[in-house]
Design a protein around this nucleic acid. Structure first.
Lengths: 155, 155
DNA sequence: AGTGAAAGTGGATGTGG
DNA sequence: CCACATCCACTTTCACT
């Protein structure tokens, strides 16, 4: 199945709308309208257009993990015995809530995870759990002591 | 400055509210109310309480980078000549829009980046730019071929 | 594409249980 | 901590430009 080029031309007004809502998805449309200088109805139409073009894929409430006691974030590179084990292992990883991201990567590892734990003890338990998965030969982990940048694609 | 333990007790209703809004921050409060079985006013009060407790740190419109032509995501580990160069280098990294995340890490690297580029050529240019930063001695990069999991902390 | 207004719905708040 | 009722603001749609 061949797809057309998915890139979509958006103008300066679209950019302003997106930039505002990327910072706060609950900003009232009328406030956006005042900011960009067109009517609320026009903003509404543009948002529908952007959604239809799949440029907007939703909105999320952002929770602060630290307030829930999750203070240890880490990256984990995993080596598998066989490349072919990947689908099965990934299915298992999806069931582990501490795993926030899972990437297939080039380079050293088969997959690369971003995980979130309450503390170092919790992370140790998680590492043990990951290493016990059948088909996992080795893991390498890197604790994130501090995250200085966290943002989306620049519009 | 010593801080009290920031963990906060949230009950099952709070969890249901958060889970719904984490999937779609624009879900009407009244719909949440119907779902959890209490009034809209009560949901509103709980949300204010959760915000005051810093458990909610905002909401974001999620844009789909692929629809904008950004199809190459990668991780980059960076080595610095001196640890002390970090603040200066991080300041420069903040000005590079392709850098979406920047983590101080234990282990191999001084910092670890998540970047987003349009394609491999674009990534190459970015790597050159990063390597040209004064104080950067070496970089290692891992292209994410596919991301299978992307979520927030489990409530 | 954008405007303006109309109609419906949801958000915010205070009083009371 | 929650329900109910109120008021105001916002969303959504439509006819027109």
């Amino acid at each position: 199945m061949r797809r057309k080029p998915k890139t979509f031309t958006i103008d300066g007004i679209d950019k302003k709308i997106l930039r505002m809502l990327m910072e706060d998805a609950r900003t009232p449309i009328l406030e956006v309208a005042r900011h960009v200088g067109i009517s609320g109805a026009a903003i509404h139409q543009r948002l529908r257009k952007l959604e239809k073009a799949k440029l907007i894929s939703g909105s999320k409430l952002i929770v602060n993990p630290e307030a829930l006691g999750f203070t240890t974030s880490a990256f984990i590179g995993m080596y598998f015995d066989k490349e072919g084990d990947a689908p099965t292992i990934i299915k298992l990883l999806k069931r582990i809530p501490e795993v926030l991201e899972c990437h297939y990567t080039t380079g050293h590892w088969n997959v690369f995870l971003k995980v979130l734990c309450k503390n170092n003890d919790h992370l140790m338990l998680l590492l043990n759990k990951l290493q016990d998965i059948t088909g996992v030969s080795r893991t390498e982990s890197f604790i994130s002591l501090n995250q200085d940048i966290d943002r989306q694609v620049k519009i």
